[in-house]
């Protein structure tokens, strides 16, 4: 018995049995190693429907019969080609099949429930958890002023009025309460980042925008937590994209798990 276990022929047969068992268990009908070709009624419907769509007319019985014959011929040649190993070492087929496997995962995955979205937000807190809204007064003083410290002191003790040092710019001197993204759009993203570090209810700065320097008095600062309904569309799209990526990775990982991969060292 132990001798038999070392016999290559036995290995081969056992392997064949496994493959057979697999296709039997999974019910996959197109087993390339089988010599049975079974064209079902639904196969015929599909073949006919394809042809009707391309030709835009109904087909005669003879025409359908010819298409079915053609299909059978193709299937025989296809299986023989696989038996001969014609797919092996063919870069085109290899890439084509790999590509097909990949695209299996980008299928439609439906819409998420609210609880799925809640969970998604929970996993990406930085993206959805909170953002700020600001209302502020600002005094634009141009690009280079040497008296910044004196002016800040003067603004705070009231000895300098905003209009004394203001350089005119068409942006409103009072910024109404707005999302930080909208403020960033007006003043540049670096400006918004700097706003976060300022004290409120008193003159501060100057901080720099794309236009130059600004003294800022923050009147109001609100931290906003996203509600699902406010950003449902964006969330759904993000969730779908993440889901597709996850599915792709999971499917690949599962496949890759069964492989022992060894790569020779190279420079």
């Amino acid at each position: 018995m132990p001798k038999l276990l070392k016999e290559p022929l036995v290995h081969f047969l056992a392997g064949a049995l496994l493959i057979f068992a697999y296709f039997w268990l999974t019910g996959a009908s197109r087993d390339p190693s089988s010599y049975e070709i079974n064209i079902t009624a639904s196969d015929i419907d599909r073949i006919a429907a394809d042809a009707i769509r391309t030709s835009n007319r109904l087909l005669t019985h003879d025409e359908i019969s010819a298409l079915v014959d053609q299909n059978v011929r193709e299937e025989i040649l296809y299986r023989e080609a696989l038996r001969l190993g014609l797919d092996d070492g063919d870069a085109v087929i290899r890439r084509r099949l790999a590509n097909k496997m990949r695209s299996l995962n980008t299928s439609d995955i439906g819409n998420p429930s609210d609880s799925e979205l809640e969970e998604f937000i929970g996993k990406n807190p930085a993206q959805y958890k909170e953002y700020y809204r600001y209302a502020f007064d600002h005094i634009y003083i141009g690009r280079s002023s040497t008296d910044q410290k004196i002016w800040l002191k003067g603004l705070r003790d009231g000895s300098i009025k905003p209009d004394d040092i203001r350089v005119s710019l068409s942006l409103d001197n009072q910024q109404k309460l707005a999302d930080e993204a909208d403020i960033g759009r007006k003043f540049g993203i670096n400006f918004t980042k700097a706003l976060g570090g300022l004290e409120t209810q008193q003159w501060a700065g100057p901080i720099e925008s794309g236009f130059g320097q600004h003294f800022i008095m923050i009147q109001e600062k609100q931290a906003i937590t996203y509600q699902i309904d406010d950003i449902r569309q964006r969330l759904t799209n993000d969730w779908r994209a993440a889901q597709i990526e996850k599915n792709e990775k999971a499917a690949f990982d599962e496949l890759a798990e069964s492989y022992a991969i060894e790569i020779a060292p190279f420079k």
């Binding site: 697999y22 268990l25 999974t26 299928s107 439609d108």
Partner: peptide
């Protein structure tokens, strides 16, 4: 193995 086959079958159905 079976699980993975089921997965792909489901994926095909989804397509």
């Amino acid at each position: 193995m079976r699980k993975s086959a089921q997965y792909w079958a489901a994926a095909l159905g989804a397509i």
